[in-house]
Structures are given as C-alpha cells and as structure tokens.
C-alpha cells in the first residue's frame, strides 16, 4: 500500500459510507416528522412547552442533569421501564420533534425523567421538587444526587414575609436563622416548571400500528400498556 491517492480514496469512502447510512438516510427518512393533530381537540401533539419550562430546560442543560438522568422510556420487553412507572409506553421518535436539543441521555445513576411531570404534578409536585433540589435526601433517603442549594437564596425578611418563601417545606436542620427566609431563584422556578412539563402524550395513531405491532395470538397481557401488545423487534 504505497499509493497515497488509493489510500485516500478508501479512507474517503469508508466515512462517506457511514455518513450516508447513519446520518443522511435517517435525516431523509424521518428528519421531517410532523406533529400529530388530534381531530377531537384540534391540538398538535407533542405539544410545545411553555416559556418558563423552555428556560428551565436551559438550566437542565447547564447543570448537566443528563449525565445521570435519561429521557427515554424503553419499549416493553426491553428492560422494565414501564413496570418501574417511568411511562405508560415506550418513547418514540415523534415525541422529540419539537425539542431543539434532544436529551436522551446515556446514564441512569438517577431515574428516567421522560414522564417525571406525571409522577410529580401540580402544587404537590412543585413542593416535592423544592425539597428534592434543596436536599435530595429529604425526599429520597440515601440518594446520591447533588444538592442544588445554589438555586435558592436565603435573605433577611424586609417588611412582610415573601409569599414565595419555601422554608416551611424544609425540615428542622435546614431552617434559616430567625428573621430570614429561603426563596427559590428564578432559575430554580424555571427548572421546576421544566420538570412539571415533562410528560409524553398518548400514543400517536401511526406509531400505534407501526411501532406497537399487535402479536398474532392474543397473548396473556400482564403489562400490555396502551392496548397493543408490544413487539420489540418492530419497535422504532
């Protein structure tokens, strides 16, 4: 192999091959998936997230949450994500089409967060996250999650106490000195809004037939979420 041009051609085609196969082909085949418009309520799914949640996603990004948390539910039969309550169905490509940055993640030091907005919703969910971010062991004994106390600030009460003060949620050992209160910074509020927004809609009709192909024989469905029994080989 002493001919430089031939070596170069081989090198070129090697990478052109995978670039075409992995990137270009998929960009063409599903790089322009569109939302599903539900005729009943006239809404397009997946829905776009509100502004505070979108800001919260940037906080999620800058704090590096993805290094411990995934955002993808594995299909039934591959792992036990659904049995763990991390979602009612496996994630599909259409779930992510509105996200300018996709955080699938590769590590589960902590639980999957794709549907954390379902597990902790509303005012109760907000309060859970406040406690959890202040000191994760308040809600989850033995957790090794980093504390995010820097998303809060302790300040002296001037005039009336802030209606947004959160110290009443915290245990004895985290109470501020008398005359001061703990409030959540805007970044913290946004991050919680993002957590509350994380939930996938019901399965889209196209995926219900293409991804979740019903088995030929009606098998015993012990964990058949969403009607159709899964077929992981066909899962997209």
């Amino acid at each position: 192999m002493n001919r430089a041009p031939l070596i170069f051609l081989g090198i070129f085609f090697a990478i052109a091959f995978s670039w075409t196969g992995i990137i270009l082909t998929n960009q063409i085949s599903y790089g322009s998936l569109t939302p599903y418009v539900n005729a009943d309520d006239g809404k397009a799914y997946p829905q776009s997230v509100p502004g505070d949640a979108a800001r919260g996603k940037l906080v999620y990004q800058d704090l590096g949450c993805i290094y411990c948390h995934t955002q993808q539910v594995r299909q039934p039969g591959f792992g036990i994500d659904i049995e763990r309550g991390w979602g009612e169905r496996g994630s599909v490509a259409r779930d992510y089409i509105r996200e300018s940055r996709v955080f699938l993640g590769t590590m589960r030091t902590g639980p999957d967060l794709r549907n954390v907005g379902t597990r902790f919703a509303g005012q109760g969910g907000r309060e859970w996250h406040i406690k959890h971010f202040y000191d994760p062991t308040i809600t989850s004994a033995g957790s090794i999650m980093a504390p995010y106390r820097f998303l809060f600030e302790t300040k002296a009460i001037i005039g009336d106490a802030s209606p947004k003060a959160v110290q009443s949620l915290l245990p004895e050992n985290h109470q501020p000195v008398a005359g001061s209160e703990i409030v959540l910074k805007q970044r913290g509020e946004d991050l919680i809004a993002y957590m509350l927004s994380l939930k996938d809609p019901e399965l889209y009709p196209e995926e219900a037939t293409k991804v979740y192909v019903p088995k030929a024989e009606p098998a015993k469905t012990e964990h058949g979420a969403h009607g159709a029994e899964s077929n992981k080989e066909a899962a997209k």
């Binding site: 090697a14 990478i15 091959f17 995978s18 196969g21 992995i22 998929n26 085949s29 599903y30 993808q72 594995r74 299909q75 591959f78 792992g79 496996g90 994630s91 599909v92 490509a93 779930d95 992510y96 699938l104 590769t106 080989e233 066909a234 899962a235 997209k236």
Partner: peptide
C-alpha cells in the same frame, strides 16, 4: 468502526 456508534442508542427511539 464508523458504523458502530449507533450501539449507544440500542433500545432508544431511533429506527430499529
């Protein structure tokens, strides 16, 4: 080698 990277997405929401 250059096709191998997709193994980081096994079981994920990308074409099978």
């Amino acid at each position: 080698y250059n096709w191998a990277g997709v193994h980081h997405l096994i079981g994920g929401p990308v074409p099978i």
